[in-house]
Amino acid sequence: MAAIDISGLTYTYPGSLVPALRNISFAVEPGQLVAVVGANGAGKSSLCLALAGLIPALYHGQIQGSVTLNGMDTRLHSPGEFAGRVGLVLQNPTNQLSGMRYTVYEEVAFGLENIGIPRQEMPPRIEHALALVGLTDLRDRSPYTLSGGQQQRLALASILAMEPPILILDEPTAMLDPQGSQNLFEIVQKLVHTGTTVIIAGHQLEWISRYADRVIALAQGEVILDDTPAKVMASPLLTQSGIGWLRYTLAAHQAIARGLWPASRPLPVTVEQAGEGFRQTNQRIEGQEQTDADPD
């Protein structure tokens, strides 16, 4: 059974004339890492809310089609029933703190208390989640004295302790510095290796190209691309819809016209691929110069 199954999803917010999501259909197998890219306003956040079971339950509005999460249809269950089954991490680290707990350790316990996890099961879950995000040393600190990156990791740990098989991240590094972002991505990678299905929405194209199993591109609420990073990140549709290519993809594309990128070679979507391709060009040029220099 697919972990996530979206079929013909069209959703319009109350009071809005234009649908935020249009006829979206895709399925995600358990353990996949799927990236969702799109310009601002393309529908990434709305899709994340739909994938977390919060649309339509909290927002009402008009919905057609369905979203099924490990067999549960989001139109038929309240958000409370999805707690622990789907996790959602948002952009702003401080807003995700409960505001009810004075230490990191207790903050992680908050979600477990809400879903009725027995007391004796809490410490191992909390320790494991804190270790996963690297906050074990800060367990007795007040959540409000942590840096933005640390708070974001705490938000993640609080969700992970609930052990949801599906995890949605909506622009999780938007408010973090490069080091904080790097830390977060490393944690996400670890999660995927343990079998969690992860959907990550955002603009971190370099990382997406490198680690995602699959990339879905949104434009004006519709899916315009749904394929491997190699295919999606080099597709012309990406630049047309306002998302843009990575710098070296663009460089290689422009280099083709000048014969500086082998035309038969696919466009690079990671810096290593770009390096390989340009090295090949370099060798060809050096070989040419060699031949030119050698009149024989």
Partner: peptide, 25 residues
């Protein structure tokens, strides 16, 4: 503006779940 994001964060932490609550200590 924060109000909305805060409420979403609470929801996904099971705040409105109807299961009986337990406590850490």
């Amino acid at each position: 503006v924060d109000v909305e994001e805060r409420s979403l964060a609470l929801e996904v932490r099971g705040f409105s779940a109807s299961t009986p609550k337990t406590s850490l200590f």
